Computed example of a mutant assay.
Amino acid sequence: MAQLGFDFGVQPRRLTKVTPARLSTFDDCPRRFRMSYLDRPTPQRTGPWAHSTLGAVVHNALRALFDLPPDRRTPARAAALVTEQWQDGGFADAAQADAYRERARQWVADYVERHDVTADPIGVERWISAPVSVDEGPPSLIVEGRADRIDVRDGELVIVDYKTGKREPDEYEARGSQALAMYAVAAARTLRRPCRRVELHHLPTGEVAAAEHTGDSLRRQLRRAGETADEIQLATDTLAAGGDPDELFPARTGRRCAWCDFRPSCAEGQQAAPAARSWELLAP
């Protein structure tokens, strides 16, 4: 006699874990994805990049700022936190590193001056993970990632992402960011509050690029994430079964090969573009 509540003839659907970083890496270059996440030992990489060092320092300083009581979140303390977090990796020389340390100190001091930082975020550098469905069916993905900041405003969650690059972001970049959309969905599921607004905070200019998502726009981003996740899973499974790694994870060459972390291990990338200097992507 059949047991109630069980159907042993139906295989449960496998949930695929995805992060924005993994999806973005695969979309940019499947070869870089394989070298980053699958190849062991990890292939030879470049040294540190100054723009990555700078971004990490600013992120760490702002994280430390929100660990302080609200009355201590002052421009002077924010600037001091940059000095405490500072690293020199990737800069041309000590003089350039000193100049950018002072710029970063001014960026975060101005940021604190212009923005209300007295409210406690619900999350700072918070890891979030939630099962989601890309359609109306059961969950098919587990969306994971670390959000720079999650605010609560008027009862709703807001995803905040810090940027320190050359180019000032705009509303279209905020709306089109798959990472921000995925964080919004995962945060809403995890923290059980609506989350539609996403913001890019550009520290060099102090500008904020914001977008308000709808249910449809979030679903479109999830569908795109699901499609990429399916491609990754198929290529990974085929590789494990003995498939050709270069065919399954081809190099997608272009200008970005100049500053790819795995340039020393990729002949195609070396031929595609001349090597960038480690400080060339710094904001002016």
Rank of each mutant, 00 (worst) to 15 (best):
M1L: 14
F8N: 07
Q11H: 10
R14N: 09
L15T: 05
T16W: 01
T19Y: 11
L23R: 07
S24C: 07
D27L: 12
C29E: 08
P30S: 14
S36V: 00
D39Q: 15
R40E: 14
P41E: 05
Q44T: 14
R45L: 08
T46N: 01
L54D: 03
H59T: 03
N60S: 15
A61Q: 09
R63E: 15
F66C: 07
F66M: 11
F66Q: 07
P70I: 04
R72K: 15
R72F: 13
P75R: 11
A76M: 12
R77C: 08
A78L: 14
A80C: 06
L81N: 09
Q85G: 02
Q85W: 12
Q85H: 14
G89C: 09
D93G: 09
A95M: 01
Q96K: 05
Q96W: 05
A99V: 04
Y100Q: 05
E102H: 12
E102S: 06
R103H: 13
R103N: 03
A104L: 04
R105D: 07
Q106V: 07
Q106E: 13
W107I: 01
V108E: 01
Y111A: 05
T118P: 00
A119V: 14
D120Q: 15
E125S: 01
E125N: 02
R126Q: 15
S129C: 11
A130N: 10
V132N: 02
I142H: 05
V143Q: 06
A147Q: 01
R149I: 05
I150R: 03
I150W: 05
R153G: 01
E156G: 03
E156C: 09
L157S: 06
V158F: 01
D161T: 02
Y162M: 02
K166S: 11
R167D: 15
E168W: 06
P169T: 04
P169D: 08
P169K: 06
Y172H: 14
G176I: 04
Y183D: 03
A187N: 09
L191Y: 13
P194C: 07
C195Q: 07
R197A: 00
V198G: 10
L200V: 03
H201G: 09
H202I: 04
L203C: 07
P204R: 07
E207M: 14
A210K: 11
E212D: 15
S217K: 00
R220P: 00
R220C: 00
Q221M: 06
L222G: 09
R224W: 04
A225Y: 02
A225R: 02
T228K: 02
D230I: 03
D230L: 13
I232K: 04
I232G: 05
I232F: 10
Q233L: 14
Q233C: 10
L239R: 01
G243S: 14
P245C: 04
L248S: 05
C257R: 07
C257D: 08
D261Y: 06
F262I: 00
A267Q: 11
A267D: 13
A267G: 02
Q271D: 08
E280D: 15
A283D: 12
